[in-house]
């Protein structure tokens, strides 16, 4: 049988119960075209070191479990092909979040911020009978906005989240804009008020990190910019079309 090529994986390890400091373990994983980094992690966990901890679920880039730092960039392990990674594959957990074990981080702060922005539709009219009417154009504004899978890659990549732990972060702010842009949502003022404080949109330094890493092309930076624009326009009592985005 043909001997398979192997790739070296350098993986961040830390178990708060037994380790004083984090360290890196290296593993050699046989691979072929089509193998993803997540499958390589599975291989390591099943065959080389059972104690390796990482989250995984759908393995097709829609559940958002496996965001991690792979060779300099936050991405989904399941969508990253091993053959596309040059040299040793170095994997770190997401930043700004406490480490539970190895690549598993405590996502609670991330979700707490999501909860803080009222992430649900606030309709103006009571819901009765059939569906509300929304034109295709109105729906088209939401096209990438609703694609967020809450993986947290943007949150980990954002420098502002690093030094301001109260900063809402790209995902939550983009979610605000998702509802703000929804023609069925009637809580514009409320939503803008929620994000116009010093840990909200004006904290954003427009670094574009979130835009670069987002695996679903949600582009949180543009969403945050739209919210800023709307807040300014409203305080100047200028009528500013939502279409501007």
């Amino acid at each position: 049988m043909e001997k398979k090529k192997t790739k070296q994986f350098k993986i961040f390890r830390f178990n708060p119960k037994t380790d004083k400091r984090h360290y890196f373990d290296t593993f050699d994983v046989p691979y072929e075209a089509g193998m993803t980094v997540l499958q390589a992690l599975n291989y390591i966990q099943r065959n080389l070191d059972g104690s390796l901890a990482y989250r995984s679920s759908c393995r097709e880039g829609i559940c958002g479990s496996c965001a991690m730092h792979i060779n300099g960039k936050y991405c989904l392990a399941c969508e990253t092909q091993v053959i596309h990674v040059k040299g040793t594959v170095t994997i770190r957990p997401m930043a700004h979040l406490d480490i539970i074990k190895d690549l598993v981080v405590d996502m609670n702060p991330f979700f707490e911020k999501l909860k803080a922005i009222k992430p649900y539709l606030i309709p103006g009219d009571p819901d009765e009978g059939a569906e509300r009417i929304q034109t295709q154009d109105e729906r088209a504004y939401l096209n990438t906005l609703v694609d967020c899978i809450l993986c947290g890659a943007c949150y980990a990549s954002c420098a502002v989240n690093g030094f301001d732990e109260d900063y809402l972060g790209p995902a939550a702010l983009a979610k605000v804009n998702r509802f703000f842009m929804d023609s069925r949502d009637k809580a514009d003022e409320q939503r803008l008020a929620l994000v116009s404080d010093e840990h909200g949109v004006f904290r954003c330094h427009t670094l574009f990190n979130c835009q670069v890493v987002c695996p679903k092309n949600v582009n949180p930076t543009a969403n945050i910019a739209n919210l800023k624009r709307q807040i300014i326009a409203r305080s100047l009592t200028v009528k500013f079309s939502k279409k501007g985005m």
Partner: peptide, 8 residues
């Protein structure tokens, strides 16, 4: 009504 963004 709960906000699902169905295609239209």
């Amino acid at each position: 009504h709960w906000g699902t963004p169905f295609s239209r």
